[in-house]
C-alpha cells in the first residue's frame, strides 16, 4: 500500500493537492527568504518548493548566490528573514548531509577513511559495533571499492570526495546537499563521480540539492534544474528533465537532453545579459 507522505497535510501556500504524485510534493519549502551582504541584497523575498525524492541542480551566473542558498537551507549561513522548513520541521530537527567542494579541507586528515565516515555516528553516540556495521552496510550498498584503512592523503581526489559523500550519507539523511562537489577533480574523475552520484541517488532516492557550475553536468544529473537570476536572485526557471535513470553517456546526445540543455542555456544567457 502506498504511504502518503505527511507533507501533504502541511503544505503552505495553498498548493495542497491530494492528487499530487508523491514525487511532486514539496519536501523543502522556502518562503520570503531575505539575505543581504554589506548592503547588497543576495535574496529578496525568495520563494521555492523543492520536491521530495528528486535531485535538484542549482545553476546560475557567478556570484548569484548558489552557495549562499544551500548554506542557508543547510543552516550554515543565517537568514536575515524568511522561513525554510522540511516537512514543517526546521533544519535542527532533521538529519541531513553536506558535501563540500574542497574535500581536502573537509575531511579529517588525522582519521582513516573509515573513521571519517563513521564520525557522524560517533556524534550520535552509537556503539562501536553498530557504527562498524552501518559503514559496512553502506559500502556494500554503494559497491564502493576503496581501502577504508587508508588516510585521506593516501587516496585520489575522487576517492576522497567519495569518502566525504559517504560521510554525508552514513546518517541516512533526509536531504543531501552538495556544493560543486566535483569541480576540484580532473575531467575523467568528474565523469566517474557523476555516475557514482547518480548510482547513489538511484539507490537512496534522497532529496538532493546539487550546485554545479557545469550546465551539462547540472542537467545530466537532475530531475529538476533550478536556474537562478542575477542578484538579488530569483527563480529564472525551474526546468524538468525526466529522462529515465540510470542515464549514460548516450543520454548526452539524446534529443530531450539537448533540448533541455539548450533551453537552460538560453535562460542563463538572458539572465547574464540582463545584468
Amino acid at each position: 500500500m502506498p504511504v502518503r507522505p505527511p507533507i501533504l497535510r502541511s503544505l503552505p501556500g495553498g498548493r495542497m493537492d491530494a492528487g499530487a504524485e508523491r514525487e511532486t510534493a514539496a519536501h523543502i519549502t522556502i518562503r520570503s527568504l531575505c539575505k543581504r551582504f554589506e548592503n547588497e541584497a543576495v535574496y529578496d523575498n525568495f520563494d521555492l518548493d523543492i520536491p521530495r525524492g528528486l535531485l535538484v541542480s542549482v545553476f546560475g551566473p557567478n556570484g548569484c548566490g548558489k552557495s549562499t542558498l544551500i548554506n542557508m537551507i543547510a543552516g550554515l549561513t543565517p537568514v536575515d528573514a524568511g522561513q525554510i522548513l522540511f516537512d514543517g520541521k526546521t533544519i535542527g530537527e532533521i538529519r541531513f548531509g553536506y558535501v563540500f567542494q574542497n574535500y581536502r579541507e573537509a575531511l579529517f586528515p588525522w582519521l582513516r577513511a573509515f573513521s571519517n565516515i563513521e564520525y557522524p555516528l560517533k556524534l550520535l553516540r552509537l556503539p562501536k559495533a553498530e557504527r562498524k556495521e552501518r559503514v559496512e552496510r553502506l559500502v556494500a550498498h554503494l559497491g564502493v571499492k576503496i581501502d577504508l584503512n587508508r588516510y585521506p592523503y593516501e587516496l585520489s581526489g575522487g576517492q576522497q570526495q567519495l569518502v566525504s559523500i559517504m560521510r554525508a550519507l552514513i546518517v541516512e539523511p533526509e536531504v543531501l546537499f552538495l556544493d560543486e562537489p566535483f569541480s576540484a577533480l580532473d575531467y575523467e574523475m568528474t565523469l566517474f563521480m557523476r555516475d557514482q552520484l547518480q548510482r547513489i541517488f538511484v539507490e537512496t532516492r534522497t532529496t538532493t540539492v546539487f550546485v554545479s557550475h557545469d550546465l551539462e553536468e547540472a542537467v545530466y544529473l537532475a530531475d529538476r534544474v533550478l536556474l537562478l537570476s542575477r542578484r538579488p536572485a530569483q527563480v529564472a526557471d525551474f526546468v524538468t528533465y525526466d529522462a529515465p535513470r540510470p542515464r549514460t553517456a548516450a543520454a548526452l546526445s539524446d534529443a530531450e537532453f539537448v533540448g533541455v540543455k539548450g533551453h537552460c542555456l538560453e535562460v542563463f544567457q538572458r539572465e547574464v545579459r540582463r545584468g
Binding site: 543547510a74 550554515l76 579541507e105 550520535l124
Partner: peptide, 10 residues
C-alpha cells in the same frame, strides 16, 4: 571548512 564540516554534522 573543517570546522564547518564538524558543525554541519552536529
Amino acid at each position: 571548512t573543517r570546522l564547518l564540516a564538524a558543525k554541519v554534522m552536529g
